[in-house]
């Protein structure tokens, strides 16, 4: 597994944009970060879980380029990945 350099966004298309919603943004203390591609979605998840171990206990879905992911996606620079937890409030 390659080591990823996680950095703050500067809107460039040379990286993969990762967005966190709801309590996942609180858990990772950011709503957005960037990683370098290409890599598999499963690799990104593993790397994020290493950096934020409590992510493993959370229920969430992942969307890649605004479509719900299957889990097998290959991610390339310029892609956008969103981590979506369920919300309860109303």
């Amino acid at each position: 597994m390659k080591s990823l350099s996680i950095g703050f966004p500067n809107n460039n298309m040379d990286r993969i944009k990762v967005l966190f919603f709801g309590e996942l943004a609180e858990l990772t203390a950011t709503s957005q970060l960037e990683v370098s591609g290409p890599l598999l979605l499963s690799e990104l998840r593993e790397e994020l879980e290493r950096n934020y171990p409590t992510l493993k206990d959370r229920v969430f879905q992942v969307a890649v380029n605004k479509r719900l992911a299957t889990g097998k996606e290959q991610l390339n620079n310029g892609d956008e990945v969103a981590f979506l937890p369920p919300f309860a409030g109303g």
């Binding site: 309590e23 206990d57 959370r58 229920v59 879905q61 719900l68 979506l84 369920p86 309860a88 109303g90």
Partner: peptide, 25 residues
Amino acid sequence: RCLFPEESGSKVQNCQERGVLAVLP
């Protein structure tokens, strides 16, 4: 359930627990 197939139980906080700012609802 196509979005979240499994019930995630009590871990998800509601407005009472997390709070909510007036206008959002």
